[in-house]
């Protein structure tokens, strides 16, 4: 090759290019590994739980009462208690949260008052659950005189989930294209008509998902209900779906898990694991329903 001519082929890989490509490969593997590292523990946990829980699992375990000082038997009162707490808390939090989010997203103008509300919502979402527990104790148990009861515990959980429901609902509302709203405004629709005819139908799946995701949070929290209405043990009818009244105290799965794991000696080994599986299983079941509902509603809306 002549000394004046090009010394390399055109577009050949230079050292610099090779380094860039190597770095790119490394980055891809690192990120991929992290994604995998996130899934692996989940699978590990579930497998381990199932393995340890196996001896106790079964229909009997679900519908039976805890026996012999919670060392044997099932978890029915705790299971139903969690159902009560989650259902009532979401029945309170969901309407308030959704309506508040609609106000904040569709009506509120950008002024200091609404910015203050926003700030409050964001900060409330970050408050530790133990603080909510204390608040619930002071506000519902003592000040409102609901006592240690399902009502107090549910309201405390509702206060805790409310800000997250507001935030997720706002996100769902904000994802509705503005073009749809413009279309309505320009045929003379009021804001409310716009919300009802266009915004809600197109965001309802996102709103529901946000609410249902809070089921797992409400079901899993221990501190707020421990302070306000959940007890170690409460006898109910085996398999009874409506054993509690609003003013009663109740058992709950999260609390029960804590009790049988740490507070009671000589518990049959598989019982805490089986309790965890029931808690996890019911939450996953609810979430799966949510996903199914979402997929179903998605299929109807396409823009």
């Amino acid at each position: 090759m002549a000394s004046t001519g090009p010394t390399t082929q055109r577009f050949a890989r230079t050292a610099q290019a090779a380094r860039s490509e190597r770095a790119q490969k490394v980055a891809k593997w690192v990120f991929g590994a992290m994604a995998l590292a996130m899934v692996a523990p989940l699978i590990g946990i579930v497998t381990y739980l199932l393995y340890r829980a196996w001896p106790s699992l079964g229909w009997e375990f679900l519908v039976d009462l805890p026996r012999k000082g919670m060392r044997e038997g099932g978890i029915w009162p705790a299971f139903v208690g969690t159902l009560y707490l989650v259902t009532i808390s979401l029945a309170v939090a969901a309407p308030i949260g959704v309506l508040a989010a609609i106000y904040l997203n569709e009506y509120a103008r950008d002024n200091w008052f609404n910015r203050l509300i926003n700030l409050a919502v964001i900060n409330l979402a970050g408050v530790p659950s133990i603080v909510h527990a204390l608040f619930g104790l002071g506000a519902f148990v003592y000040a409102a005189q609901f006592g240690f009861s399902i009502l107090s515990a549910s309201l405390t959980l509702a206060i805790m989930t409310l800000p997250v429901i507001i935030a997720s609902t706002r996100e769902a509302l904000a994802s509705v294209p503005r073009a749809f709203r413009e279309a309505c405004w320009n045929v003379g629709a009021t804001r409310w008509q716009t919300i009802r005819a266009v915004v809600l139908p197109n965001s309802i799946s996102g709103i529901l998902t946000g609410i249902i995701l809070q089921v797992s949070r409400a079901a899993g929290e221990t501190a707020p209900i421990m302070f306000t209405g959940a007890v170690f043990y409460k006898a109910v009818q085996r398999g009874d779906l409506f054993p509690y009244r609003l003013g009663d105290q109740c058992m709950a799965l999260s609390m029960h898990l804590y009790t049988v794991s740490t507070q009671v000696p000589n518990v049959k080994e598989s019982i805490p694991y089986a309790t965890a599986i029931v808690l996890l299983g019911s939450v996953l079941l609810v979430n799966a329903t949510a996903i199914a509902a979402r997929v179903f509603m998605r299929r109807r809306k396409r823009w």
């Binding site: 073009a179 749809f180 413009e182 279309a183 309505c184 320009n186 005819a197 266009v198 197109n202 823009w303």
Partner: peptide, 10 residues
């Protein structure tokens, strides 16, 4: 009013 991007409702 009619807009830049057609905005039929879904």
């Amino acid at each position: 009013m009619v807009f830049q991007r057609p905005n039929p409702l879904p």
